[in-house]
C-alpha cells in the first residue's frame, strides 16, 4: 500500500515576502517600487545580483500588488529557464502576449494600471538571438507592456536590452538581516537554534537566504526541532573545517606519502572535491604565514584543477596533484619540473 503524501510546502515558498515593502535589505528598489504603486507608472526593469537576494520575490510581489489575484493571470506572463525560450517563443508567444491592449481602472482595491507585465526570469540564459529579437518588440509595444528581466550576471544581457531598462542591483544580505529572518522562521516553526548554529548557517549560506532556508528545513526534517551547528554542516555538504585543516597541514609537513594518504581518505569519505578546493582556497587566502608568491602559485593550480574537474577528470588524481603542488609551493621547491614539459 502506498503511503499518503501530506501536502508539504517548501519553506522557501511559504516564507516568501508577499509585499514589496517586506523585501529585506534592498532599500533602493523598494523605494522606487513603492513609488510605482502610488503613481502606477513603471519603466522596464532589470534586476541583477547573486542568487537568493530576492529578485524573483520582488518581481512577483510588485505584480501581485499591482493587479491582485483576479487579473494576475491575464496581465502577467512569467517565463523562466526551464521553459523553452528560443527565438521562436520570443517571436510568437511573447509577441502575441505583448500585442494585446488592455484597459485601466481600479478593481477591488488594486491599482491595475493599463499595461501588462512580462517577467523573464534567469534572462542571462537566453540566447543572444532571442535577446536581439526582443529589442524591437520592447519598443513597439511599450505602451501596453512592461518587461522585467531578472538575471545573475548583467554582462550576459546584451547592451541594447540593458540600456532600455532601469537597472537595479540586489546586494547580498548582511548577516544581521539574515539572522533576523531565520529567527523569525524558527519561531514560526517552533525550532530551537542556538547562536553558534545561527552564525554557522549565515556563513555556509554566504548571503544566499534561499540556501539558508533550504538547509534549515532539511536539518529540521532530519534532526527534529533542536538543531546544532554540526547538524547544519552535515546537511549542507560543507566539509568540516578540521578535515580541510588536516589536509593543509599534511601539505605543510612536506611528506608526500602523508598527503597521499590524506587524499585517498578524503575520497573514501565521499567528500566532493570541488567543495574541498573552494574551502582549501579560503584557508590559503587567509593564511598569514605565506608569501604572496606562494599563494599565487597555489591558487593557479586550484584554477587548473577546477577546470579539469568540470571536464570530468578523476577526483583523486586532481586532488593529489593539487596537494603535491601546494606542498612544493609551501616548501619552496622549484615549480617547474627539471625534465620535459
Amino acid at each position: 500500500m502506498a503511503p499518503v503524501l501530506q501536502s508539504s510546502q517548501p519553506w522557501v515558498e511559504k516564507y516568501r515576502p508577499k509585499q514589496v515593502k517586506d523585501v529585506a535589505h534592498q532599500d533602493e528598489v523598494v523605494r522606487v517600487l513603492t513609488n510605482t504603486l502610488e503613481t502606477t507608472n513603471c519603466p522596464h526593469m532589470l534586476f541583477y545580483g547573486p542568487p537568493g537576494t530576492g529578485k524573483t520575490t520582488t518581481a512577483l510581489a510588485i505584480t501581485h500588488q499591482l493587479f491582485g489575484p483576479e487579473l494576475y493571470k491575464s496581465r502577467v506572463l512569467e517565463l523562466n529557464a526551464s521553459d523553452d525560450r528560443g527565438i521562436n517563443v520570443v517571436r510568437t508567444k511573447i509577441k502575441n502576449f505583448a500585442a494585446v491592449a488592455v484597459g485601466s481602472g481600479r478593481q477591488g482595491g488594486y491599482p491595475c494600471p493599463p499595461y501588462k507585465i512580462i517577467i523573464l526570469d534567469e534572462a542571462d540564459s537566453m540566447t543572444e538571438d532571442a535577446q536581439n529579437a526582443l529589442r524591437r518588440t520592447m519598443e513597439t509595444y511599450s505602451k501596453v507592456t512592461r518587461f522585467f528581466f531578472i538575471c545573475n550576471y548583467i554582462s550576459r544581457i546584451i547592451e541594447p536590452l540593458a540600456s532600455r531598462c532601469a537597472k537595479f542591483r540586489f546586494k547580498p544580505l548582511t548577516e544581521e538581516i539574515m539572522s533576523s529572518r531565520i529567527l523569525y522562521i524558527c519561531k514560526e516553526e517552533g525550532l530551537h537554534l542556538d547562536s553558534e548554529a545561527l552564525s554557522t548557517l549565515s556563513s555556509i549560506s554566504q548571503g544566499d537566504l534561499r540556501r539558508a532556508i533550504t538547509y534549515l528545513q532539511s536539518a529540521a526534517r532530519l534532526f527534529g526541532s533542536a538543531i546544532s551547528s554540526k547538524d547544519l554542516i552535515s546537511v549542507s555538504g560543507v566539509i568540516p573545517a578540521e578535515v580541510v585543516q588536516a589536509l593543509f597541514s599534511a601539505c605543510k609537513s612536506g611528506n608526500f606519502d602523508l598527503a597521499d594518504k590524506k587524499v585517498s581518505n578524503l575520497i573514501a569519505e565521499g567528500y566532493p572535491v570541488s567543495q574541498m578546493l573552494s574551502q582549501l582556497y579560503d584557508v590559503v587566502v587567509e593564511a598569514d604565514d605565506m608569501s604572496d608568491e606562494q599563494k599565487a602559485r597555489i591558487c593557479k593550480k586550484f584554477a587548473e584543477a577546477d577546470k579539469c574537474l568540470i571536464d570530468g577528470a578523476d577526483e583523486y588524481l586532481q586532488l593529489l596533484d593539487v596537494a603535491s603542488n601546494t606542498m612544493r609551493a609551501l616548501c619552496n621547491t622549484s615549480q617547474e619540473f627539471s625534465l620535459g614539459v
Binding site: 611528506n255 608526500f256 606519502d257 597521499d260 584543477a305 579539469c308 571536464d311 570530468g312 577528470a313 578523476d314 588524481l317 586532481q318 593529489l320 596533484d321 603535491s324 603542488n325 606542498m327 612544493r328 621547491t333 619540473f337 625534465l339
Partner: peptide
C-alpha cells in the same frame, strides 16, 4: 609506481598522471 619512487619524483609523476587522465577524459 609511487610505491617505488623517490619523493621528489613522486610529485612529478602524480602531476603527469593527473594531466594524462584529464586528457584521457577529453
Amino acid at each position: 609506481l609511487l610505491k617505488k619512487l623517490d619523493s621528489e619524483l613522486k610529485h612529478e609523476i602524480s602531476h603527469w598522471a593527473a594531466y594524462y587522465e584529464h586528457r584521457l577524459r577529453l
